[in-house]
Nucleic acid binder design. Structure first.
Lengths: 267, 267
DNA sequence: TATCATTTGTTCGTATGTATC
DNA sequence: CGATACATACGAACAAATGAT
């Protein structure tokens, strides 16, 4: 058992160990749900120090292949080629009478309503830097898997001014928010922006993320189609390791004229 | 200068240092583009060991706040509340005559055409596990920022069989692929799935990612709307630290009947 | 061009804390 | 309680890149 498996030092040894273990997982040498050899065993297997093994294991955690549990071991949770188990539909539906329907989400707690100053991406997307807004924060989860997601609705006071019913019940379901904007005379259009990053410490707490897997972040901007004026911004944050977002894309009719809205403001 | 700044030990000391530095960056104590104190200096500042500082810096790298360069130092690249500089439009447009228009992308190299066996998410989305397909790989980049993205088009042989022109020129622009599918009699519908994860070593190489920032991954599935049969799958991989995907959402008309296509197959 | 101080990257060893069984 | 295993932290050494001398 102590024949050290062949690794040289070209990239880093930690990277080589990580790649080796990842390959072993993909090949099925380590099965999903099983525990890989302990760190001490791997030190012997590969003839490297503890720090090297820990770096390799950290990389495997980030790639979403394993999950480490203190006192127990490192468990294989994916072979790397799997579809995330939770699909979050971002579909927007509307019936003949003009009412809106959105995929349902289960709330984990009562929504928290606060007054905030717009900042960061929402402020940019709403084009209302430092303006005030009503923020409705919800913790949502998938009943099947228990995966938690954070949902935030930002209603600028400027929007509440032209649709006063929003300020009265900002915690209403999103479909009702859309209904009220429609009744206020707006023709709604939606644009969604998606990116990802590692979670901040407070986000790891709130979402119950044990590992260091990235966070999927989506901003849905609801605008008045007539004047291209942004009215509302919703933010969703979900663990990327277990979630994927689903969009139904409808081709837009366009004459030969090129109207590609490009925003490449290099920071 | 050696007055150690106050930190206790309740979360981890590394996490506290990371949070402290992140707060300092957000507050503007360390400006974007500037170099934060060296690791040796931080050891003195906080009275902790080198490993602790390195763990903290690694966390900041994952959050996309700093970039470290050997021999130079750690540079602040973002305050954390910024919109990614590169916006990748996923819009699909069509003119009156039925031709398709897609946002243009600049190719870094000639496309690589290979024959592969479908596996992983594309196989699931195309519902063609282990079937053969033509794979067209492109390396694309944003001229403004130089950000590189990987693009892959997967044409199942089953689809090439019903639209033979695809196999003759699989490296054609995507809009022409859509044109040919339309001419073959299909009514196209599109669904996009988005997730993220840490890149594998080979992906870091190909995309030129220095740090450990996550990778945004999107699969666009083109289907025949009449029979709900998947025809084509495109995959885009882009560094999430600098990119966001943009979707224009069109509400679909729906009667009262609930037709939410749900896929929560718990792995 | 060559050298050198600075700074991060990698690796090792060791010790202690803490969760699991 | 004790053995196992991961988590955290300290210290030390050398490698490699950078920039100034």
């Amino acid at each position: 058992m102590s024949a050290r498996e062949h690794i040289q030092r070209r990239p880093t040894m930690a990277a080589q160990v990580a790649e080796k273990v990842a390959a072993d997982i993909k090949r099925g040498r380590y099965q999903v749900g099983e525990i890989v050899p302990s760190e001490a065993q791997m030190e012997q297997m590969y003839g490297v120090g503890k720090a090297t093994i820990r770096t390799a294991m950290a990389e495997l955690k980030h790639m979403g292949l394993i999950e480490t549990r203190q006192g127990k071991g490192s468990i294989v949770i994916s072979t790397g080629g799997a579809v995330p188990p939770v699909t979050i539909s971002r579909a927007i539906q509307r019936n003949g009478k003009g009412s809106w329907f959105l995929p349902e989400m289960t709330e984990a707690e009562a929504p928290a309503i606060t007054r905030t100053s717009l900042d960061g991406p929402p402020a940019v997307h709403l084009d209302q830097q430092d303006q005030d807004a009503i923020s409705v924060d919800r913790m949502v989860y998938d009943p099947n898997t228990g995966t938690r997601m954070a949902h935030r609705t930002l209603i600028p006071l400027a929007t509440a001014a032209v649709a006063p019913s929003l300020a009265e019940a900002p915690e209403a379901p999103t479909s009702e928010i859309y209904d009220q904007l429609t009744q206020a005379g707006f023709t709604l259009s939606f644009t969604e922006f998606v990116t990802a990053r590692a979670p901040f410490p407070d986000e790891r707490m709130a979402l119950g993320l044990d590992d260091a897997a990235p966070l999927l972040i989506a901003y849905r901007v609801t605008a008045d189609a007539e004047h291209d004026r942004p009215l509302l911004c919703e933010e969703v944050r979900a663990p990327a390791a277990t979630c994927q977002l689903a969009f139904s894309l409808a081709p837009t009719r366009t004459p030969a004229k090129r109207s590609t809205r490009r925003r490449s403001e290099s920071a």
